[in-house]
Simulated scan of single mutants.
Amino acid sequence: MIVTIDNIKEPNMKNVLEVFILFISIKSSTQQCSDSKKTMEYVPSCPRSRAEWNAASDFKKCANVQQTCVQQSEFVYHCVINTYLNATVEVCAPAVDILGQKCAEYNTGGERIQEHSKTNCSTCPFRYLSSDSYLYQECYRIIHSNVTLSNDNSNCDSKIRESEEDNPYVAATWVLFSILVIIVFIIVVRCIRSRKS
């Protein structure tokens, strides 16, 4: 018998499966986009309003960037924190859902926008679109409380780029985690079936 959401009788198992499927579908949408990396620039601050975001987006011209990641209309402006919580970056990338009241980050090693797992954002909703990061200024305050940016940050930029390149294991970690969750799910379903028999 094939296990589907409809033939699971236990309500808790059905909820767990639905959350797991949602999680996997959202995680699989956070694809690597190497074309985004060439658009990344370190900036001293990010937009604080929709008007500032629109102006920065118009200036960045993400719709004109030649890329092969997504449809051109889905390659959009972002201003987010970096992985190391020491800079803000402007980048053109596909918008993704950010989950778990976390801040959005651009990961140069993974060449993607994703949630920053070590941030806790009390003003962020559980789920929001990464291109709406300007609405959650708390995330930028994390950076500015950790680092004072100087006018000449070229040395800082090269050190940040070098250290972010060393993080190629992010995708592999998610794949292994997903496989582990599937195995645990199968074991739980089999245990429930054997109890009913």
Rank of each mutant, 00 (worst) to 15 (best):
E164Q: 13
V147Q: 03
H144W: 05
E162L: 11
P168Q: 14
A172F: 03
P168T: 09
R127E: 10
S163E: 13
C124F: 02
S130Y: 03
I187C: 06
Q137K: 12
P168H: 13
S145N: 15
I179M: 15
L149W: 01
D166H: 08
S130M: 09
L129K: 15
C139F: 00
V170M: 06
D152T: 02
T148P: 00
R141V: 09
V147R: 07
H144G: 04
F185D: 01
C139S: 11
S150V: 07
C156S: 07
V189E: 02
Q137C: 02
S178R: 03
Y169F: 10
L135N: 06
S163F: 10
K159E: 12
I182H: 05
V188C: 05
L149P: 01
S130A: 15
D157T: 08
F126N: 15
I186M: 10
E138L: 11
C156H: 08
N155Y: 04
S150L: 15
R161V: 02
L149V: 04
S154Q: 13
V175E: 07
Y136I: 01
I183T: 12
I143C: 08
F185V: 01
E138S: 13
V189S: 00
K159T: 06
I160A: 02
L180I: 08
E165N: 15
C124G: 06
I143A: 01
V170S: 11
D166W: 11
E162P: 01
S145D: 09
S145H: 08
I142F: 03
D157I: 03
S130F: 06
Y140R: 00
I182C: 10
I179S: 03
S154R: 09
D166G: 00
S130P: 08
T148L: 07
W174F: 13
P168C: 13
C139M: 04
E138F: 02
F177P: 00
S150Q: 14
T148D: 08
V188D: 02
E162Q: 15
Y169T: 14
N146I: 07
R141K: 13
R141T: 11
E162A: 13
S150T: 14
V181I: 14
V175C: 07
C156K: 11
C124E: 03
S150I: 04
I160K: 01
T173M: 11
I187L: 12
I182G: 02
C139V: 04
E138Q: 15
I183C: 07
E162R: 15
Y140H: 03
N153L: 12
F177A: 14
Y134Q: 02
Y140S: 02
E164S: 07
S158I: 09
S145P: 02
Y136R: 09
A172P: 00
N153C: 09
I187H: 03
C156E: 06
K159I: 05
E162V: 05
F126K: 15
L149R: 02
I183S: 10
V181T: 02
K159N: 10
H144N: 11
V147S: 03
F177L: 12
N153E: 05
P168L: 10
P125C: 13
R127G: 05
S150G: 14
V147L: 12
I183H: 06
S163W: 05
L129G: 04
P168K: 15
V147M: 08
Q137A: 08
E138C: 06
Y134I: 01
R141N: 09
I187R: 06
D132P: 04
I186K: 09
S158K: 14
C124T: 06
F185H: 01
T148V: 12
S163Q: 09
